[in-house]
């Protein structure tokens, strides 16, 4: 063990974060301000997710950390090592064995269960941010359920490109009330946002926490004549042959030959086992 409290944060701080989480679960999709702490790792590198995970962790938990779907990405390795050190919890790379999964940019391919928590690292929690830079203004827009601007943006995409040109961090409406940012997951993952698991979103630098309770309705924004489409690269995994998993594209040689493999390394490995 270390000189720090279990899971690094002191208990009053965890309590403060848990309150924000509970509020977030009570009002799905609402961005709850919380007094984000300065963590011993940089803002923008998962400090929001780390604080949420720290507030949820119990000694018996089994933690999995992924970045880009993979367990062996450097920042995932670093965050996993952090919790192994300051909480002493068991870690795993197996999605099915984890009780808490902290993720950056992916939802695991293996369906999640009711006894699991998925914690997302969120860079910019505000789905309206790039349409309206002012927080004071966007909070008002959410309060009034004023999402016309977002629909105009999606419409303009269609007018210009013939399709909605948002490929990741695709906005969705949760529980028929709040439009929220699912973090920069590919839109391929959006249908998995309706899940039996608890989903918690932590944005440390922006001091916001939000949540999707289990079995909550999540609708990706679209139009009747341009329905949402969960797209992915046209290819199959070179390792396991999967056709229906999200793929990483790898440039295999100097001639630019492309190869694909599963982004979810655990899922791919399980299929080959």
């Amino acid at each position: 063990m270390t000189d720090y409290n279990f899971a690094y944060l002191d208990e009053p701080t965890k309590k403060m974060i848990r309150r924000a989480i509970l509020k977030g679960l009570a009002v799905p999709g609402y961005q709850v301000p919380f007094a984000s702490r300065e963590m011993p790792m940089p803002c923008g590198w998962g400090t929001g997710g780390v604080q949420v995970t720290a507030a949820c962790l119990m000694p018996k938990d089994v933690l999995k950390v992924i970045d880009q779907g993979a367990d062996d990405t450097t920042n995932a390795v670093s965050i996993r090592a952090f919790f192994a050190r300051v909480a002493g919890v068991a870690t795993t790379t197996r999605t099915a064995k984890a009780s808490i999964i902290q993720t950056r940019h992916r939802i695991p391919e293996t369906p999640l269960r009711e006894d699991q928590i998925l914690v997302y690292q969120v860079p910019i929690p505000e789905p309206l941010r790039f349409l309206e830079p002012r927080e004071t203004e966007t909070r008002r827009m959410h309060a009034l359920e004023e999402y016309g601007l977002m629909h105009v943006k999606l419409y303009e995409d269609i007018a210009r490109h013939g399709a909605i040109a948002t490929s990741y961090a695709y906005p969705a409406m949760v529980n028929d009330r709040y439009v929220f940012d699912p973090s920069p997951i590919p839109r391929f993952d959006n249908p998995k946002l309706e899940s039996p698991a608890i989903q918690l979103f932590g944005a440390g630098r922006e001091q916001r926490i939000y949540a999707i309770p289990p079995h909550t309705r999540v609708v990706s924004l679209d139009f009747e004549d341009h329905p949402f489409e969960a797209s992915k690269a046209d290819g199959v995994c070179a390792l396991c042959g999967a056709e229906d998993s999200y793929l990483d594209e790898i440039v295999a040689d100097d001639a630019g030959t492309r190869r694909f493999q599963c982004s979810d390394t655990d899922w791919c490995a399980e299929r080959r086992a």
Binding site: T74, A233, D248, E249
Partner: peptide, 20 residues
């Protein structure tokens, strides 16, 4: 922190952009 985080891997979202 936020500026430098763009050196972390982003190939999942970049892949989504490529495909689009």
């Amino acid at each position: 922190g936020f500026l430098e985080h763009i050196k972390l891997p982003h190939y999942v979202d970049f892949q989504a952009e490529l495909e689009l």
